[in-house]
Amino acid sequence: MSGNGNAAATAEENSPKMRVIRVGTRKSQLARIQTDSVVATLKASYPGLQFEIIAMSTTGDKILDTALSKIGEKSLFTKELEHALEKNEVDLVVHSLKDLPTVLPPGFTIGAICKRENPHDAVVFHPKFVGKTLETLPEKSVVGTSSLRRAAQLQRKFPHLEFRSIRGNLNTRLRKLDEQQEFSAIILATAGLQRMGWHNRVGQILHPEECMYAVGQGALGVEVRAKDQDILDLVGVLHDPETLLRCIAERAFLRHLEGGCSVPVAVHTAMKDGQLYLTGGVWSLDGSDSIQETMQATIHVPAQHEDGPEDDPQLVGITARNIPRGPQLAAQNLGISLANLLLSKGAKNILDVARQLNDAH
């Protein structure tokens, strides 16, 4: 009898209710805020589980004197976190989706994509230029951005401005803007500013005609071990179906173009009346040469937790077992079709030249 009692006690200790789920994140304040929001949602869904947040620095956090596009290494903000995932030191990792490459290392998958916040870019102005827009900034004003995508589009749109690289986390960039006289304004992701509670610093939100956004911008991705079915089931509740389908289309477009950090590629997606609209573009580094096109596809946005595919093969690095396969494939095909259209119009040449120029500098 006593033996059975011990077995029952052991089973209770090993039951999922007692389990601590370890969540990996970057150390920056924004990353911690984003991770806290994901953990809060998981806690609400699984009140019996405990969650421990483990923060670590990544290569991208450490190399702050070089433009991201020049470092010449993929997975700048993800490699150390993936290493911890691989060694079973954490069970899942919360990322900004735009930091996750469209091809993940073997053994990993994006197990959830959370509801997207505003994906557009924002302009934050130096205190002396508050009330201005990019259009009304004085001639030769210097605007800071760490992104080739932003610089290429904005140089084309605002030729009277000069664009220079600015690195560091959000706090560091804002301090550089406010305390030094080098920059009249800087460009940042609206979602990051909003998550930090800095709505009052948003001086201008850039519309798609001015600057399309990065693939996955404004959404959070939760990376897990691809074979860890328990954790895949656990994080599945975080999937937002519309965000998922938009981001599958965007990531398929980028992957098929073979774009990345070192080339200016941008997108804009919208879901309306059962249609998914995808606009994508590529630019030369100075913005003088560009190709942009829009395509659409009829896609039914499923309700969360309709029964999805059981075999769960990944699409552009994403596993969404609780979302039907048909809409996911339709979104992926839309991204591939748009990429093929741009490639047929000469996108590869623009991107190759951009890559060579970026590598040469």
Results as ranks from 00 to 15, higher is better:
Thr25Ala: 11
Lys348Gln: 09
Val316His: 04
Leu193Phe: 06
Trp198Gln: 06
Leu343Asp: 14
Leu85Glu: 03
Thr136Glu: 11
Ala297Lys: 01
Trp283Phe: 01
Leu148Trp: 06
Ile71Trp: 07
Glu210Gly: 04
Glu293Trp: 14
Leu351Arg: 07
Gly274Leu: 09
Lys87Ile: 13
Gly111Ile: 01
Arg355Thr: 05
Gln328Val: 05
Leu134Gly: 04
Val94Gln: 05
Gly144Gln: 01
Pro264Tyr: 01
Val39Tyr: 10
His300Gln: 11
Leu148Gln: 11
Val124Gln: 04
Arg251Pro: 05
Val130His: 13
Arg255Gly: 14
Ala67Pro: 04
Val235Trp: 01
Val143Tyr: 06
Leu343Ser: 06
Ser288Glu: 14
Lys157Leu: 12
Ile336Cys: 01
Val222Tyr: 01
Gly221Val: 03
Glu306Cys: 04
Asn322Gly: 01
Val235Asp: 01
Thr243Lys: 06
Gly131Leu: 08
Leu154Val: 10
Ile323Asp: 07
Glu242Ser: 04
Asn171Tyr: 13
His300Asp: 15
Pro324Gln: 10
Ser290Asp: 06
Ile323His: 07
Pro119Leu: 03
Ala112Ser: 09
His305Pro: 01
Asn340Ile: 15
Thr190Met: 03
Ile113Asn: 01
Phe253Asn: 01
Asn118Ile: 13
Lys115Cys: 08
Ala320His: 01
Ser284Trp: 05
Gln204Glu: 09
Thr109Asp: 01
Arg173Thr: 01
Leu245Ala: 14
Trp198Arg: 08
Thr172Tyr: 09
Ile113Tyr: 01
Tyr213Cys: 07
Val23Phe: 13
Ile187Ala: 08
Cys114Gln: 12
Phe125Glu: 07
Pro138Ser: 11
Arg251Lys: 12
Ala214Met: 14
Gln275Cys: 01
Phe129Lys: 04
Val301Phe: 13
Thr78Val: 10
Val94Ala: 01
Leu351Ser: 07
Leu341Asp: 15
His207Cys: 11
Ala226Asn: 03
Phe108Pro: 14
Glu117Ala: 07
Arg355Cys: 01
Ile71Val: 11
Asp240Tyr: 13
Pro309Asn: 15
Ala219Cys: 01
Glu306Leu: 14
Lys132Tyr: 11
Leu234Asn: 14
Ile54His: 05
Thr35Gln: 01
Gly111Ser: 07
Pro309Trp: 05
Leu343Met: 15
Ile248Trp: 05
Arg164Lys: 12
Lys27Met: 11
Val237His: 01
Pro138Asn: 11
Phe163Gly: 08
Leu285Ala: 13
Ser45Met: 06
Arg32His: 07
Gly111His: 01
Gln181Ile: 07
Ala55Tyr: 11
Thr172Ile: 08
Ala152Asp: 04
Gly221Tyr: 05
Arg22Phe: 10
Leu188Gly: 09
Gly72Cys: 06
Arg201Thr: 06
Gly144Cys: 08
Arg251Thr: 06
Arg26Tyr: 01
Leu238Arg: 01
Asp352Ser: 09
Leu334Thr: 01
Tyr213Asn: 10
